[in-house]
């Protein structure tokens, strides 16, 4: 299957050397290599992490997709599988891990909680979706997604990788590339997103005048 996808980018090979020569594009080869070795960060947050582990075990066996190498260190990981509820207390650690991951890096929001806060969205210690802070590539609904649904999401991610082109990817683009760095949020009276400091101050100040008025 992979061979068919890899070869013959609209180029006809003469019949007599068909079995000897294979033609592909650099993009296809590059993406094929990357999509077949997406190493996830070993990173479990909540209930979804158990299904993530289950997806790694014998019955579902994510190793078939080259995703079995769970790396406990972000330096060696390609993909952050946000598997569970992101709490405000945990968020700075997650952002730090993300910043430590080398490019190319992908973020998959597994399950309702990671996508939008899920059933715990209204809670005071829950971040309403990791996409508020990190660029999410694939959202997998479900609470928790079954291992098969997770694998379906991973295939979706592979499709996304397939569409990328080596000449356009952000990590080789030296001029525009800012490393996808996300500033660390702080834990104050509530979670402080430092990118929005002025906004927070303005609204907080307005709150005072409103209440005194």
């Amino acid at each position: 299957m992979d061979n068919e996808k890899l070869s013959l980018p609209n180029y006809n090979i003469p019949q007599d050397i068909e079995n000897v020569v294979a033609i592909t594009t650099l993009d296809r080869l590059y993406n094929w290599g990357r999509r077949s070795s997406v190493w996830p960060l070993m990173f479990g947050l909540a209930c979804c992490a158990i299904e993530m582990i289950a997806a790694q075990t014998a019955r579902y066996d994510m190793a078939r997709f080259g995703m079995e190498v769970m790396r406990p260190t972000p330096r060696q990981a390609d993909m952050m599988l946000v598997s569970g509820t992101v709490t405000k207390k945990m968020l700075p650690s997650i952002i730090r891990l993300y910043n430590q991951m080398p490019e190319p890096k992908y973020v998959v929001a597994m399950g309702a909680c990671a996508s939008s806060g899920g059933p715990f969205k209204e809670g005071y210690n829950v971040v309403a979706g990791i996409d508020k802070f990190l660029p999410v590539d694939v959202y997998i609904p479900g609470c928790p997604p079954t291992p098969q649904a997770l694998i379906a999401g991973m295939i979706k991610l592979q499709e996304k990788i397939d569409k990328e082109s080596i000449s356009k990817v952000r990590w080789y683009n030296k001029e525009k590339f800012d490393g996808n760095y996300v500033p660390m949020p702080l834990l104050g009276p509530d979670l402080i997103d430092v990118r929005r400091n002025t906004e927070i101050r303005d609204i907080a100040a307005k709150k005072t005048t409103q209440e005194s008025a």
């Binding site: 996508s115 997998i140 609904p141 997604p145 098969q148 649904a149 379906a152 979706k156």
Partner: peptide, 10 residues
């Protein structure tokens, strides 16, 4: 149907 992962919020 569980294969409903997407690139957007659902």
């Amino acid at each position: 149907d569980f294969a409903i992962a997407s690139y957007e919020r659902n």
